[in-house]
Simulated scan of single mutants.
Amino acid sequence: MKAKIVYASMTGNDEDMADILEEDLLDYGFEVDSSDVTFSDASDYLDSDLCIFITYTYGEGKMTDEIADFYDQLKTIDLTGKYFAVMGSGDKTYGEHFCENVFDFEKAFKELGASEITAPVTIENAPDDEAIDKIDTAAKEMADKLNG
């Protein structure tokens, strides 16, 4: 199984999430390719079975330019037959906007025909032990569903 992880990280928190998930998926036998959103194209997902996007939500949910550009690219491809997962970080002081971009991408993947393999993983700020457990659990769920 091939997994493609694209992450957007301003402070390094989401890159850390991507690294944790990549290590988990490799342990489960996945072939994993990870890249920063600024060096990725949404069409990169077409060569993978599992499409993962990890993003931060800045402030009140407005996507930064690099995230918005990738989102616009994503909306142009057909992901029917693919699986997806979304993860990300945010700041709970923004209330209803906490991790809003994660849910924007979840909706987009569904609209593009992809099947959600695990519930979105959202964390506040940097991944602590509880957040790492959430990522590990999501990775196991992905492996269980895709590796039989």
Results as ranks from 00 to 15, higher is better:
A18Y: 04
D19H: 01
L21H: 04
L21D: 00
L21F: 04
E22Q: 06
E23L: 08
D24Q: 15
D24S: 13
L25C: 04
D27H: 10
D27N: 11
Y28V: 01
E31V: 03
V32H: 05
V32M: 03
D33Y: 12
S34M: 08
S34H: 02
S34G: 04
S35E: 10
D36N: 13
F39S: 14
D41F: 14
A42Q: 08
S43Y: 15
D44W: 06
D44M: 05
D44T: 07
L46K: 13
S48V: 13
L50G: 03
C51R: 06
C51H: 03
I52P: 00
F53P: 07
T55L: 03
T57Q: 04
Y58F: 14
G59M: 00
E60H: 12
G61Y: 09
G61D: 05
T64Q: 13
D65K: 12
E66L: 14
I67Y: 02
D69L: 12
F70C: 09
D72G: 10
D72Q: 11
Q73W: 10
Q73E: 15
K75V: 10
K75Y: 12
K75D: 13
T76L: 08
T76R: 06
T76C: 09
D78R: 08
L79G: 05
L79H: 05
L79C: 00
T80N: 10
G81R: 06
G81Y: 04
Y83R: 10
Y83P: 07
F84A: 08
F84N: 01
V86C: 06
V86D: 08
M87S: 06
S89R: 03
G90D: 06
D91V: 08
Y94E: 06
Y94V: 05
G95H: 00
E96Q: 10
H97S: 15
H97M: 14
F98T: 07
E100D: 11
F103C: 07
D104M: 15
D104F: 13
E106Q: 11
K107I: 12
K110L: 14
K110V: 12
A114P: 06
S115P: 11
S115V: 15
I117A: 03
A119W: 09
A119C: 04
P120C: 00
T122E: 09
I123D: 05
I123C: 02
E124S: 02
N125H: 13
N125F: 14
N125E: 12
A126T: 09
A126E: 10
P127W: 07
P127D: 02
D128T: 05
D129R: 10
E130C: 10
A131W: 06
A131S: 02
A131L: 01
I132F: 10
D133L: 11
I135T: 01
I135A: 00
I135F: 03
T137M: 15
T137G: 13
A139D: 05
K140R: 15
K140E: 14
E141C: 13
M142R: 02
M142C: 02
M142D: 01
M142V: 07
A143V: 03
A143H: 04
D144H: 00
K145P: 07
K145D: 12
K145C: 09
K145E: 12
